[in-house]
Design a protein around this nucleic acid. Structure first.
Length: 806
RNA sequence: AGAAGAUUAGCUUAAUUGGUAGAGCGUUUGUUUUACACACAAAAGGUUAUAGGUUCAAGUCCUAUAUUUUCUACCA
């Protein structure tokens, strides 16, 4: 028998153990169709917040739904533990920079730290009821992952999509590494717009340039003016004298100069921003790079060499002011590109870096995007927009320690890159030696290892390859090409989704998945997205699970429309708690009345039973339609609505028949038993997608045909009662109205109705006559008079037996 | 500055694609009815952000505007 009260904490840990011991979620190849899920490996940088709970739960519900629909579920969980995020976590915890700790010791600390957090993560996700098979989980630092990343790299090298080149790259002088465009985050900062006077060398004519970055004055290589700018175009062809720096540079024409921006005259440096780089390439301008990689002015620059960028900015403004070159200084708020991992403004640097070709295949990436179904649809637009806007090839090398090493050495003599052989992977060039005796180009015999590591996205973009154990023995390439679905939040469409598509296109020439499902964000109280870096989440997932239970947290996570941001609210949790409590209580009620029940063929259903069976059947159709579109929230909503109708209306009617077989007859009672037995079973199945714990507890107590409710199959009902049931809902409405009458008179709902006069149309009259016993019992009617009416119904007279109250 | 989404009761939201705007919380009132007071029944609360338009019919489609979120661009 079910307990009087449901103890969620105790039951949830009981079923967790049971599922583990009985390998309920184990993946094994068999003859069923596979539904495979490429779920994001969370970055191991500290904390899981409720935003994660939200989006991972929605994915998890899809897994459960598909499992109940007979699919063999391939649902591995991963952890993204390599790369910069982990390094920053360790640096933060140690209070020291990586280079201060040293490469080897630092990597060791990274492993220790990520191990610790991954255990916490795994516990948390398990407690949430995530139905993953932990035996197929992966880590992005594991040797097998490193091997696949390196294999992927070599494959791209062989196919000519990856190259090593000295080229300007985005540089973070906080993290001391190059980064990719996708890792940029725009931030608004306050700065000053400085109007500085220049003079032409030829005519000594003054003109003004406005800049936010006067420290770049020593890096100016030329000045640009728009040829259509009538105020300034006469300067073209002359030379400009840079104040304070005392260097002359040419004044050139380019139509990219916006006449109305600043003063309409632009100084061009290598490298101040992307336009500068564009001009540098277009006009083959000289390279004048004045920053060191750790954010200082190089020593060669007179007066400012060795200063930090921001100090140099101050100093140079002071010097300009002292000599009277500053016309005015305006306060300015503008958007700058920062590195998303540390929030510091990015610079540009020129070093040899590894790049993956993006720019030559944009159209292919758009095409693949079109072949994938995006849920919700408008997320496809975001993808397209990103691909169309990408301006750089993907720089995948990072001047860091804790990542996948490049399987590359360089010939000491000629610099030729030597690649590892595929069969030797994984390799660490710092430890391993290349598998050749001499450089094929110059016959040099000494090799220098590549010290850079790969961008973390270079690894996470191969999660489909990791999942399919690309090129390994016993791999899953046959069933996972493509995978069924990728799920993630919208912020990583430009990174994870995009890069995965890039890699899948280069490796296989095809889409990595059939579907992409994008969840919304969880917002903190008003309007602000919850994020790890902002630390604006008040609630700890683990506390919430302990306080409310995993099922209740999942109720919250499963509400809301796909792709739509939601605000975290404890009210929703309370609503979920009530729903779960109700499921428990109605199950207890049904269990009570099924003590003598035996399931057998039966067709002689009572009218009201037919009504609820038919209503359920139609609800479930809509429910399934929503889930096929991955709209878990709308599906849950549909189900919940039916469920309350079932409890408050149907159960209230049928309970009289269940309690009093002598009065109502054994067959009508059996009809009720069979109905509640059938519907509760199906309700439990449908609810198990959202509430895996409580539904398992009830299922095991009442049904237990299979090892677990999560191994059953949803079979839709195929009743056809619609012809007989013309007015089922109207009968409910009449009951509600009559109850309302009692409520308005402030009497108990059990108060007998002495006389009830009803006007009913033909169909409704037929319906009530077919359910006359149920109808009268539900409302405690003593005398019922039915009169005909053409359309609809009306309650003409309701006479309560008020004396019987006391 | 561009793109996409959102705006429905005090709060959180639904409306299966153009057909009577429904819930929950909160408020108020009543009922302790053999599953459940974490319940049941009921009441109040809406010009669906604003202004136009299309249509027999608009929360839903179109055009503006406002507010808001996300993404992208803008560093001269």
């Amino acid at each position: 028998m079910l307990d009087k009260k449901y103890n969620a904490l105790e039951k949830e840990s009981k079923w967790l153990n049971y599922w583990n011991e009985n390998k309920i979620y184990e993946f094994k190849k068999d003859d069923r169709k596979v539904f495979s899920i490429d779920t994001p490996p969370p970055t191991v940088n500290g904390k899981i917040h409720i935003g994660h709970i939200f989006s991972y739960s929605q994915t998890e519900m899809i897994a459960r739904y598909k499992r109940l629909r007979g699919y063999n579920i391939f649902y591995p969980f991963g952890f993204d533990d390599n790369g910069l995020p982990s390094e920053r976590l360790v640096e933060k915890e140690q209070g020291k920079k990586a280079h201060e700790i040293g490469r080897e010791a630092f990597s060791k600390l990274c492993y220790q730290t990520t191990d610790k957090y991954e255990e916490e993560f795994q516990t948390l996700f398990s407690k949430l009821g995530v139905s993953t098979d932990w035996n197929i989980h992966y880590r992005t630092v594991s040797p097998s992952t490193i091997k696949i990343s390196q294999t992927s790299f070599l494959d791209l090298i062989n196919k000519g999509h990856c190259y090593h080149k000295e080229s300007p790259a985005l540089w973070c002088n906080e993290c001391l590494t190059s980064i990719a465009q996708a890792e940029l985050e725009t931030k608004t900062i306050k700065t000053t717009f400085n109007y500085i006077n220049f003079k032409t060398v030829e005519t000594n004519e003054e003109f003004t340039i406005a800049t936010t970055r006067p420290e770049l004055l020593p890096a100016i290589v030329c000045v640009f003016v728009n040829p259509n700018d009538e105020v300034h175009n006469h300067l073209i062809g002359m030379n400009a004298h840079i104040p304070v720096i005392n260097v002359d540079v040419p004044i050139m024409a380019d139509e990219n100069v916006a006449i109305d921006k600043g003063t309409g005259v632009v100084m061009c440096c290598t490298f101040g921003d992307q336009t500068d780089i564009f001009w540098w390439k277009k006009y083959n301008l000289p390279l004048k790079y004045i920053f060191t990689n750790d954010g200082k002015i190089i020593n060669d620059v007179p007066n400012y060499g060795g200063m930090k960028i921001k100090d140099a900015r101050k100093k140079i403004i002071e010097d300009l002011q002292a000599e009277g070159y500053v016309v005015k200084i305006e306060e300015l708020e503008h958007e700058v590109q920062t590195h998303e991992r540390c929030g510091k403004e990015v610079e540009y640097s020129v070093m040899k870096q590894w790049f993956i070709d993006i720019m030559n295949h944009k159209q292919d990436f758009i095409k693949i995007g079109n072949e994938i179904k995006w849920y919700p649809k408008h997320m496809h637009t975001r993808y397209d927009e990103w691909v169309n806007n990408v301006a750089w090839d993907w720089c995948i090398s990072r001047q860091r320690y804790f990542g996948v090493p490049f399987p590359v050495w360089y010939c000491k003599d000629c610099g030729e890159p030597i690649f590892a052989k595929e069969e030797d992977l994984p390799v660490n060039p710092l430890v391993d030696k290349p598998n050749i005796d001499e450089c094929p180009k110059c016959h040099g015999k000494e090799f220098i290892p590549e010290t850079d590591v790969m961008d973390t996205w270079a690894t996470s973009s191969v999660t489909p390859l990791i999942n399919m154990r690309y090129k390994e023995k016993d791999n899953y390439e046959d069933i996972l090409k493509p995978m069924s679905i990728r799920t993630n939040a919208s912020e990583i469409i430009r990174t994870w989704d995009f890069y995965t598509i890039v890699k899948s296109f280069y490796h296989f020439g095809q889409k990595p998945w059939d579907n992409v499902m994008i969840s919304g964000f969880v917002m903190a109280d008003k309007g602000e997205k919850i994020s790890k870096s902002k630390g604006n989440s008040k609630f700890e997932p683990i506390d919430l699970i302990e306080q409310y239970s995993a099922d209740v947290i999942r109720y919250w996570a499963g509400s809301g429309r796909l792709g739509t941001d939601i605000v975290f609210s404890e009210e929703t949790l309370l609503r979920g708690r009530k729903l779960i409590n109700k499921i428990w209580n109605v199950s207890k009620f049904i269990e009570m009345h099924l003590q003598d029940y035996e399931d057998k063929e039966f067709n002689d259903y009572e009218y009201i039973d037919k009504w609820i069976l038919q209503t359920f059947q139609e609800m479930e159709k809509g429910f399934i339609n929503y889930l096929e579109e991955f709209e878990v929230g709308l599906a849950l909503n549909t189900l919940e609505k039916f469920f309350w109708n079932f409890c408050d209306n149907y159960i209230e009617i049928v309970k009289h028949r269940l309690y009093r077989p002598i009065e109502f007859g054994e067959i009508p009672r059996y009809s009720g038993q069979k109905t509640v037995y059938t519907i509760l079973y199906k309700l439990l199945q449908d609810f198990s997608i959202f509430f895996p714990f409580i539904t398992e507890e009830i299922y095991q107590e009442l049904y237990h045909q299979e090892k677990s409710i999560h191994l059953t199959n949803i079979k839709t009902l195929t009743f056809d009662f619609n012809k007989e049931l013309k007015n089922g809902n109207d009968i409910i409405d009449i009951i509600k109205e009559a109850r309302g009458e009692k409520s308005n008179k402030n009497v108990s709902l059990k108060t007998p109705i002495k006389n009830l006069d009803l006007h009913l149309n033909k169909d409704l009259k037929e319906g009530i006559e077919l359910s006359i016993k149920d109808f009268k019992a539900t409302l405690f009617i003593e005398n019922l008079n039915i009169k005909d009416i053409k359309e609809g119904y009306s309650i003409d007279n309701i006479e309560l037996d008020l004396e019987s109250i006391d």
